[in-house]
Design a protein around this nucleic acid. Sequence first.
DNA 1: ATGAAAGCGCTAACAG
DNA 2: CTGTTAGCGCTTTCAT
Lengths: 354, 354
Amino acid sequence: MRTVDAPASGFPPVLLEHPATIRDVAHAAAVSVGTASKALNGQGKLRAETIERVRAAAAHLEYRPNDLMQSVLRKRTFTVGLLTTEGGRFTMPMLQGIEDVLATAHISVFLCLAVDNPDRERQHLDSLLAKHVDGIIVVGNITKRPPVDIGRSRTPVLYVFTYVHERNALSLLPDNEGGGALAAMHLVHGGRRRFAHITGPADWEAVRLRLEGMRASLAEYGLDLPTDHVLAGPWHPAWGFEAMHQLLDRDSAIDAVFCGNDEIASGAMDALRERGRHVPGDVAVVGFDNWEQFALATRPPLTSVDMDVYELGRRAGSRMLALMSGERESGIVRLPCRLVVRASSAPRPAGIGN
Amino acid sequence: MRTVDAPASGFPPVLLEHPATIRDVAHAAAVSVGTASKALNGQGKLRAETIERVRAAAAHLEYRPNDLMQSVLRKRTFTVGLLTTEGGRFTMPMLQGIEDVLATAHISVFLCLAVDNPDRERQHLDSLLAKHVDGIIVVGNITKRPPVDIGRSRTPVLYVFTYVHERNALSLLPDNEGGGALAAMHLVHGGRRRFAHITGPADWEAVRLRLEGMRASLAEYGLDLPTDHVLAGPWHPAWGFEAMHQLLDRDSAIDAVFCGNDEIASGAMDALRERGRHVPGDVAVVGFDNWEQFALATRPPLTSVDMDVYELGRRAGSRMLALMSGERESGIVRLPCRLVVRASSAPRPAGIGN
DNA sequence: ATGAAAGCGCTAACAG
DNA sequence: CTGTTAGCGCTTTCAT
């Protein structure tokens, strides 16, 4: 038993200028290209000895079948385009989830970045179609203008973190409303009664949904979220800081703050400290995004809602595989968030408070 | 003058099941495929009327030349593989820089993520070679094992954020040593004299280089960095916090701290506050990475060394284009860091201090 | 069991 | 000016 690519394989030590083709292999093995093809793909009936010879030749020449040709023949490229208008913190874990699933299925991914650049988006789209990708995943942000349309191409499209108004389009999104509800429920269970919400720009859909979820959840417990306890502003610690001060001016008895993201929560906690309010003794704080670098850097560590972006990416990958194999789903799918509980929202000690 | 794809174009409203091929176009325009090809590519001499007719047919059928075939013919795919073992915060801006340059040159990018997964790395590499990419960019981290080798393929490879020990390999890296020097120089110019350095794991090359740069720079001013003023630990705020306390215990007169990254700096500043040391009045702090969310969240905002990762990405893209067009550079290229000055390192008031 | 030949979509060389 | 032909690398009948 010898290694196929050992010097003893009997082939001349030819190093081709260009990558070996199946013809080179066939020639080296002294068979026809048709036979070589069969030997390499295990098709048809060949003598074991022949197969071995071809395989050896291929190994010796470092032959790699040209995917491009195989794609042309099979009318499938086993590639998908990943078109994103986002370059933020969620993009990377998202990509990892998608890529993970697709790579496992031996699907390659074209990375198409088009942050704030519609022309580039159009260009990428054209390129993807010209490359005959088997599918396109559009990762976006709802507040921005809808992604350019794909025309009447048959290529399946999956929208993630965004959606288009069009029947038979399939979108994958985090369940922001559920996330808001999760936070509220947790705070209520922790014995909190006077709520406030500091969040991001009012025109973000996520902002609206998280608030709605919070409200709905509180309502179920017969609790109210006064309008003047909801403050919208930029996604920034400074805003959380300022807003928290405003809230305490309005109502010093607030005992629970749900923040639209972790940066805001971080700023809010700074303000609480400045005002001598203890977290979580006096006020419980819950953030959103579970951005670990932030959530773990606050003192105490921040309880936060996690959209599980990596998992969202994995689901996106799976759905894409389904679409590629002909399945035709549509609609908006929302994936649940989960709550990561840390010290900032520890239950108020029993018997204290109103 | 009419729009080519208007109903008046005179072509039957046939919607093909499969993407139109050049044959469909030729047929619709009643010419041979050869003629159609010429008309579409502006080759040879054709009657203007013929060209127009073919163009119209192509537009009507939404014809898109199949890049795969063009690639086969031209022996160039106009694609590059982007193989990365990193999924951290630097990856995204890096990708954006690379993609930006390559997309402008109409080169498509295969995204290959292989974080902590050598098997996946191998798989991706095989796939890239099978897809006949025109080049491969390997983005990595020096502390980890070297990327798997590319074999004796002719495909040019560019290493970014990592390098291999092999002549005629080309690597692009940030100038960590220069960055350390930059920080030290700035602190000296701000009137500081007693230095400390809190940094990351000692086995990181970046850690070693930043320290060396700092030392060398201080030496130029006749200043010393005592060994017990250098503390290595994890890249984490908690470490910065702990280390800063240790340092103050050893030497309460320290007036400048250079931190290996911004997270450590953030923790260090917390400790300084706890110890009643004012920043920058008593102690100046400089971080590394210029991670805005962190650097702007500290109070006062943090001065930090910026590796300009996006620009590094752009350079990588350009170098790759050069490699693809046959240029054969090699060696290790270091790109300069720049200092982003904020309040945490404001010069010590004149006349105060030793 | 193997080889010859056709065809995938496209370009380029060569005839007319 | 336009059509025909060959060929890129590979798979797949169809002969032999």
